Amino acid sequence: MGEQVTRVGIVGTGVISGTYLDHLGKLPGVDVVAVADLDLARAQTIADQNPAIRATSPEELYAADDIEIVVNLTIPAAHAAVHQAAVAAGKHVYGEKPLAMDRAEAEPLLKYAAANDLRIGCAPDTVLGTGTQTARAVIDRGDIGTPHAATAFMVTPGHELWHPAPEFYYQPGGGPVLDMGPYYVTSLVTLLGPVVRVTARAGRAKQQRTIHTGPRAGTVFDVEVPTHVTGVLEHESGALTTVLMSFDVWAGRLPRIEVHGTDGSLSVPDPNGFDGTVEIVTPEQREWTEVPVAGGYAGAGRGVGVADMARALRTGEPHRASGELAYHVLDVLESFVDSAVQDQPLDVASTVTRPAAVPLGASPETA
């Protein structure tokens, strides 16, 4: 029997599309057949380099009979509109994070897709790699007992040091929480389950920032959002995660994520990557010890969530990088910022089922 293949079309041919094309070309069960962009010349450049891929307009791609999944790699402000156009055309859709700019945009998408038996998937799919999945296996085996606490730290001095046009990081929809938070909270929900309540405080070290690189170096711009946010996520399981996300820290010797249980502590690698070293400390072994890889898609890269979704479509199983998970993560992140602004704890209205673990040795075609 020949391999079953799900045909994919990509909308948006910016820088990230090259990474997706590279990795999707290596994954089983998916075949990119078309690319589209508002600038057709950019799509045509990709098609010229890949004879098996055709260039189209977005509207032609949505209407194409041979495409089952639309991969949405447009700018965040366009995510909801492209998702809506794809599902309205009867296509499943998988997009880069965030699912939408806010909950008000995202909720109707999920309702429409569910009512029409369509699926929505969303990055980050980094949590399907061996890093987070090995940590998940350690927790599920009970190696650290019952998890009761975690920490998550993401600190940087700011994107204006390297980005030639960094203003959007400091405008509504930006800030450290909404920029990098999807990686961290998706990993935390994968490890510890959904979040039911948040408490946060926020500040900003500078009211203005200066671009340091590129043709606009020296340009001063206003900071419109909090740039240092800290607080606590309360998980449905009872575990408490202490969070610090900041664009105001010059250097910090802080772990990315740690999980602490009744019988040990676990060091989890950077959730913005697919692999990395997992380490454990227990009462018997008081020094950090590396854990052998125990789960996850080996050698994974951007787009493994698309292949996982394609397989799930063929088998009727839930896909792991789901729209429901992305919505819950967006809800947690928005609630976290709202809590800081309103100066009060807030309940998180949504919930989600913890995604299935990725077994050791799995490929997107089989697990």
Rank of each mutant, 00 (worst) to 15 (best):
G218I: 10
T156G: 10
F274W: 13
A34V: 03
I211T: 02
G273F: 12
G175I: 07
V71C: 02
A357D: 04
L61S: 04
P176E: 10
E234T: 09
G276A: 09
G12F: 00
A63H: 11
T186A: 13
E60W: 03
V195R: 00
L233Y: 03
Y94W: 15
Y184V: 05
T132R: 02
G14W: 07
A205S: 13
V70L: 05
E236L: 12
V70H: 02
P269K: 05
V293C: 12
Y327F: 15
V348M: 04
A113D: 03
A356G: 13
F247H: 14
V291H: 06
A310K: 00
R311W: 04
G129N: 04
V198Q: 01
G175S: 10
M154I: 13
D37N: 14
T289L: 12
A89C: 04
T156H: 15
T132E: 01
R119C: 08
G173E: 05
Y62S: 04
D117E: 12
E3A: 13
G218Q: 08
T213R: 15
A86L: 05
G29R: 00
T13I: 09
R256V: 11
T146L: 15
M101W: 10
L333V: 03
M1T: 14
E236Q: 13
L118Y: 00
V15T: 13
K26S: 06
P172I: 03
F274N: 01
D338V: 06
D248E: 14
R253Q: 15
A85D: 11
K26P: 00
G14P: 07
E224I: 02
V352R: 01
A36M: 05
Q49Y: 06
T151Q: 06
H159R: 15
D222P: 14
P98H: 11
V177T: 05
A113L: 11
G276W: 11
P271Y: 07
T56Y: 01
A113K: 08
L325F: 03
V30N: 00
A63I: 09
A78T: 06
V93M: 07
M245H: 09
A298V: 13
G131L: 02
Q133P: 05
E68K: 09
W162P: 02
N72F: 08
E105M: 08
A63N: 11
R7A: 07
L330Y: 06
T366K: 05
V281F: 12
N116A: 06
Q133V: 06
A340R: 08
S265W: 13
V35Q: 01
E68S: 15
H163D: 15
A321I: 01
A367E: 11
P355I: 07
Q208P: 08
E365L: 13
R209T: 05
A202W: 00
G203A: 15
V189H: 02
T13E: 00
Q44W: 03
E224L: 15
L118A: 02
D65K: 13
A340S: 10
R204H: 12
L99G: 08
I67Y: 01
Y62Q: 09
P359D: 06
Q84R: 15
E60H: 10
Y297F: 14
P51A: 15
G295T: 04
T134D: 10
A149C: 07
